[in-house]
Simulated scan of single mutants.
Amino acid sequence: MLELLPCILFITVICSGKRVDYGYVPNGDNPTLYDAVEDPILQLDQDTFADTVYNASTAFGIEFYADWCGHCRKFAPKFKEFAHNVKEWKPVVKIAVLNCADPYNEQACAENGVVSYPTLKYFPRGSAGVQDGIEYKELNSSAVVLIDLLVERIEAEYAEQRYSNWPNIGLLGDESTYDDLWKGIPYSAHYLAIVFGENEEHHESVKLILDLSRYHNKLAIRRSNFTSKLAKIMKVTQSAVIVFKRDDSVLILNSRIGPDVHHKLENLATTGDSFLALSTTSTTTMATTTTMAPWSCKRNPDKCETLYFVSETDMLKAMRYALYNDVPRAGGNFTGHNLTALKDFLDLLVN
Rank of each mutant, 00 (worst) to 15 (best):
V206L: 13
N168E: 14
E81V: 09
R223C: 00
D39Y: 03
V25P: 01
L346D: 01
G126D: 02
R246V: 08
C109I: 08
K94G: 02
L316N: 05
P294Y: 00
I14F: 11
A240I: 13
L33E: 02
V151F: 01
T290Q: 12
G61Y: 09
T271L: 06
A277F: 03
K343H: 06
Y163V: 13
D35H: 07
A36R: 09
I41L: 01
A277G: 12
L342I: 11
C100N: 06
N168M: 11
Q238Y: 12
I154V: 15
N333E: 10
A240R: 10
A110S: 11
K245S: 11
V97G: 01
Y308F: 04
L348A: 06
I185T: 08
S57A: 15
K18G: 06
N254S: 14
L171N: 07
N105R: 13
V115P: 02
K18W: 08
T58E: 08
S127P: 05
Y215R: 07
V195H: 11
E305C: 01
S16Q: 13
P77K: 14
S213C: 11
V114D: 04
R256H: 12
G70P: 06
P6F: 09
K232T: 01
L5R: 14
L339Y: 12
A231D: 04
Y34V: 06
P186R: 03
L150G: 02
P31R: 03
H203Q: 12
S282H: 00
G70C: 08
G258H: 10
T288M: 04
E312F: 05
L171Y: 12
W295A: 00
D326Q: 14
L342T: 04
D179Y: 00
A220F: 01
E38C: 06
A76N: 10
D21H: 07
E63N: 09
Y22A: 07
T12V: 15
Y34N: 01
N267C: 07
E160T: 15
D344W: 05
L42C: 03
S255G: 06
S16T: 14
P259D: 13
Y187V: 15
T237N: 11
T288A: 00
N165E: 14
R246C: 01
S188T: 15
H71Q: 07
I41G: 01
K80L: 06
Y191C: 12
A330K: 08
G331M: 07
E3H: 09
K90I: 15
L316K: 14
R256C: 04
V86M: 01
T271F: 04
E152R: 14
S282I: 00
N27S: 05
L192E: 06
K80N: 02
K183N: 03
V236C: 00
E111P: 01
Y191T: 13
A159I: 08
K232L: 03
T280Q: 09
Y308V: 00
V13S: 09
R73C: 02
E38G: 05
V20P: 01
P167T: 10
L139A: 14
G113D: 08
